[in-house]
Amino acid sequence: MTCEGCSNAVTRVLHKLGGVQFDIDLPNKKVCIDSEHNVDTLLETLKKTGKNASYLGEKSVQ
Rank of each mutant, 00 (worst) to 15 (best):
M1C: 11
T2R: 14
T2Y: 14
T2C: 01
T2P: 01
C3S: 15
C3I: 11
E4N: 11
E4S: 12
G5M: 11
G5C: 04
G5V: 05
G5F: 07
C6P: 08
C6H: 13
C6W: 09
S7R: 11
S7D: 10
S7G: 08
N8P: 03
A9T: 09
V10F: 06
V10C: 03
T11F: 05
T11K: 12
R12Y: 09
R12S: 15
R12D: 09
V13Q: 04
L14R: 00
L14E: 00
L14T: 01
L14I: 06
L14S: 04
H15V: 08
H15Y: 09
K16E: 14
K16T: 07
K16F: 04
L17A: 06
G18F: 00
G18Q: 03
G18T: 00
G18I: 01
G19V: 00
V20L: 11
V20H: 01
V20I: 10
Q21N: 04
Q21S: 05
Q21R: 15
Q21Y: 01
Q21W: 02
I24V: 15
L26C: 01
L26S: 07
P27I: 02
P27D: 03
N28T: 10
N28I: 01
N28S: 09
N28K: 10
K29S: 13
K30C: 04
V31A: 03
V31Y: 04
C32G: 02
I33Q: 02
E36A: 10
E36C: 01
E36L: 14
E36F: 05
H37P: 05
H37I: 02
H37Q: 07
N38C: 09
N38M: 07
N38K: 07
N38G: 06
V39E: 13
V39P: 03
V39R: 12
D40E: 12
L42T: 03
L43K: 15
L43S: 00
E44C: 06
E44Y: 10
E44A: 14
E44N: 14
T45W: 06
T45F: 05
L46F: 07
L46P: 01
K47T: 10
K47V: 10
K47W: 08
K48W: 04
T49L: 15
T49V: 13
T49Y: 05
T49I: 13
T49Q: 01
G50H: 07
G50W: 06
G50C: 14
G50E: 08
K51A: 12
K51C: 04
K51I: 02
S54P: 05
S54E: 11
Y55V: 12
Y55M: 02
Y55G: 00
Y55P: 06
L56M: 15
L56T: 04
L56P: 03
L56A: 02
G57L: 03
G57A: 06
G57Y: 07
G57H: 02
E58M: 07
K59R: 14
S60W: 09
S60H: 08
S60V: 14
V61L: 10
V61M: 14
V61Q: 12
Q62G: 13
